[in-house]
Design a protein around this nucleic acid. Structure first.
Lengths: 145, 145
DNA sequence: TATTGACCTAAAGTTAAGTTTAGGATTTAT
DNA sequence: ATAAATCCTAAACTTAACTTTAGGTCAATA
């Protein structure tokens, strides 16, 4: 239903990336008409899943494994569910880590607001957590443990 | 106060990585005693910041730039604050994307639970969002827009 | 005293995920 | 019918962030 160029537009992915994915086996049974790839609904959903699994930290070769499981039918449902459960746990952990990063960034934003106001870091550098505003102290302590 | 090996233990970072960071200019005025690096509180906090900025998507060369600003004193406070504000916005956006990824993963977990229960994907593949359980429909639609 | 363990440098090697290049074939618009 | 746009492959190249290797110094222990 779509050419590689249309899919490229649709997802904002370079054509070369889509060809690379195909070469790596991520579209195991994509159709071709005189050599030209025909992306249909199956491949479109595959791309959504690829983007999702990539952002969840999976490598291309493992995504390929998943695509092969899909081609193998019902006997791999359990494996596929396990995979998604694991990625879900990984992403939840990653979001937690990102929230800690956010706490560090919030603390640093506050720190430089104060430094700008005061013209130096003297007071800030010798400040103990208990002397910080409550919100900042919590961010600081979360980021520093 | 710490040797490179102790810092390596403390942060779970390979010694080679710490040397690499130093070579890339991330510890601009680390002290040495007869060639051996002395990591003190300043470098320890630098490593926490490096980890934070790296996870927020910054490259080593830009982190180096930040370390140079720190060495330049109060005249770069504003630049440093801008930097942290930008990274904070980036991380907030990233967390939003990760929540969408999580929605896709939740949908897929549900999908395979059902597929396992039913032994095939017939019904699931022809299912419209309005026929999905509410929680799943929302995840599906958030992941597919 | 000799050997072990922790430190050092410089330079080469690795890895993943693309991207670019070179050389064609095919399709679409004029 | 011809020119421009879009498609194709294979292979070389790129980049960031490390990691490994080879060769060496130095301090404490057996």
């Amino acid at each position: 239903m779509y050419t590689i160029g249309q899919v490229s537009q649709l997802f904002g992915l370079p054509v070369s990336t889509l060809r690379y994915y195909d070469k790596e086996g991520l579209f195991p049974d994509i159709k071709r008409v005189s050599g030209i790839r025909q992306f249909d609904e199956k491949e479109i959903e595959a791309i959504r899943v690829i983007e999702c699994l990539k952002k969840s930290g999976m490598e291309i070769k493992d995504i390929k494994q998943f695509m092969e499981w899909c081609a193998q039918g019902p006997q791999t449902y359990v494996l596929r569910r396990e995979l998604f459960l694991k990625q879900k746990a990984d992403v939840e952990a990653e979001i937690e880590r990102m929230n800690r990063v956010l706490d560090m960034l919030s603390y640093k934003c506050w720190y430089y607001e104060e430094a700008i106001r005061e013209g130096n870091e003297e007071r800030l550098q010798s400040m103990q957590p208990e002397d910080m505003p409550e919100r900042i102290r919590q961010a600081y302590e979360n980021a520093h443990r």
